[in-house]
């Protein structure tokens, strides 16, 4: 693992799908995607729905393979399931039959970490997100925010150098979202992994990221990249008042709005076939 290699590198990546039904039309989800995420960098991917942002994460996790191009993790080509990254999916995907602590320990268990150490590391992170007292609750006994916290620490507990997050705060209410964003920033600063973070929420992207990559409509291409130079640690709760925030927000929103407008224009389907 050389320090010079980027944590994640996309080089001219294309991804095409065809649904299983007989007459299904092929869909080009990603077109000529090239970008890198550097070690310790927090990168957000934003763009209209269906633009292939989540597909990018699946490619890094090795759950799907590119149709053309190269996806690298720590300088090595990703082929097959990539167990060296952490993946926090949109659904919390907690195992319903395991208690909170059992779920948090899961990755360590798969990695053969002995039980006492597992327990210690799990408890430590459960404590950081304030869930002590709920360790033995089952997922259906926890609130949405608690489950989300659990799914985040479950991935962070085994310390990967890259963490993928797919709209982790999507279904939460506005207050819980902001609180969890602040908690995520704290957790991230403890071990500083590279993060690829997919979101629809521009405020969230600005508040958390070092860099924001804007995708176009399907087929997803990279429209623009923005560097977020706001100093860290950031005050997530008052991020709106930070100097420089509104300019960045306006620029991002102008890009996105153009894409949403394009989606409704009649030419949208043109490039698919």
């Amino acid at each position: 693992m050389s320090t010079s290699a980027p944590a994640v590198r996309f080089q001219s990546v294309y991804k095409a799908f065809i649904a299983r039904e007989r007459a299904a039309q092929p869909i080009l989800a990603l077109e000529d995607i090239s970008f890198v995420a550097n070690p310790g960098e927090f990168v957000s991917l934003v763009g209209p729905s269906g633009c292939g942002k989540s597909t990018c994460l699946n490619l890094v996790a090795g759950l799907t393979a590119p149709s053309a191009g190269l996806v690298e993790h720590q300088g090595a080509r990703v082929s097959g399931v990539n167990t060296k990254v952490g993946y926090i999916t949109q659904d919390d995907n907690l195992l319903p039959w395991r208690s909170l602590v059992g779920n948090v320990e899961l990755g360590l268990e798969f990695r053969g970490v002995p039980a006492p150490e597992r327990r210690r590391r799990a408890r430590e992170l459960i404590d950081v997100v304030g869930l002590i007292g709920f360790e033995h609750h089952y997922p259906h006994e926890l609130s949405g925010g608690m489950r989300k916290r659990a799914s985040i620490v479950r991935t962070l507990v085994y310390d990967t150098d890259v963490v993928l997050m797919d709209e982790p705060f999507g279904p939460l209410d506005a207050q819980t979202r902001v609180i969890l964003q602040a908690e995520l920033q704290n957790l991230w600063q403890r071990s500083r992994p590279s993060v690829l973070f997919v979101t629809h929420d521009l405020v969230e992207a600005i508040a958390l990221s070092d860099r924001i990559i804007v995708f176009t409509n399907r087929p997803g291409t990279i429209k623009r990249e923005y560097r977020v130079d706001l100093p860290r640690p950031r005050d997530i709760f008052h991020i709106h008042e930070t100097p420089g925030f509104s300019d960045l927000y306006d620029a991002l929103w102008a890009d996105i709005r153009a894409e949403i407008g394009a989606a409704h224009a009649p030419v949208a389907g043109e490039r698919i076939a």
Binding site: A16, P26, L28, E31, S67, A68, P219, R271
Partner: peptide, 13 residues
């Protein structure tokens, strides 16, 4: 790029 994309789709399909 349009050509490249077309080829990729065709290949994947």
């Amino acid at each position: 790029t349009a050509d490249a994309a077309g080829a990729v789709v065709a290949g994947a399909v």
